[in-house]
Simulated assay, not measured.
Amino acid sequence: MTQNLTIHFPGKLVFGKGSLANLSDEISALRPAKVLLVTIKPLLEKLKPLIDKLTTNGIGVWVDTSIVQEPSFSDFNTLMQTVVP
C-alpha cells in the first residue's frame, strides 16, 4: 500500500506515487489566475494532462524549460526577471 507524504512548512510539499494526478486539484483550490511551471523538456508529455486540466479550469499556465541543470541562484534570478514584470 502506497501512502503520500505531505509536509506543510511554510508551504505544502506532497510526493508519492500518483501524487501528480492530484496536483491540478491542489493548485485549483488556491484559485490562482495563472501559474508558472518550471520543468525540463523530457517531462512535458507527462505534464500535459496537468496543464490541460489547469487550462480547462481557467488557470493560465506558463511553462518554462530554460533551466537544464541543477538550478543556481543566478538561474533563479534570471527566471524571476523573465516572469515578474
Results as ranks from 00 to 15, higher is better:
Met1Lys: 06
Thr2Lys: 08
Thr2Met: 06
Gln3Asn: 05
Leu5Trp: 13
Leu5Val: 12
Ile7Ala: 03
His8Val: 07
Phe9Lys: 08
Pro10Gly: 09
Gly11Phe: 13
Lys12Ala: 07
Leu13Glu: 08
Val14Ser: 11
Val14Phe: 01
Phe15Glu: 01
Lys17Val: 08
Lys17Gln: 12
Gly18Pro: 10
Ser19Trp: 01
Leu20His: 01
Ala21Phe: 12
Asp25His: 08
Asp25Cys: 03
Ile27Thr: 04
Ile27Leu: 10
Ser28Arg: 08
Ala29Arg: 12
Arg31Cys: 06
Pro32Phe: 04
Lys34Ser: 15
Leu36Cys: 08
Leu36Asn: 06
Val38Asn: 01
Thr39Glu: 02
Thr39Lys: 02
Lys41Ile: 09
Lys41His: 13
Pro42Ser: 07
Pro42Met: 07
Leu44Arg: 15
Glu45Arg: 09
Leu47Pro: 00
Lys48Thr: 15
Pro49Ile: 04
Leu50Pro: 00
Lys53Ile: 05
Thr55Leu: 00
Asn57Ser: 12
Gly60Thr: 12
Gly60Ile: 07
Trp62Gln: 12
Val63Gly: 00
Asp64Asn: 15
Thr65Phe: 11
Thr65Gly: 05
Ile67Cys: 03
Val68Trp: 05
Phe73Tyr: 09
Asp75Val: 03
Phe76Glu: 12
Asn77Thr: 12
Leu79Trp: 04
Leu79Gly: 13
Met80Phe: 10
Met80Asp: 05
Thr82Asn: 14
Thr82Phe: 06
Val84Asp: 11
Val84Gln: 07
Pro85Ala: 05
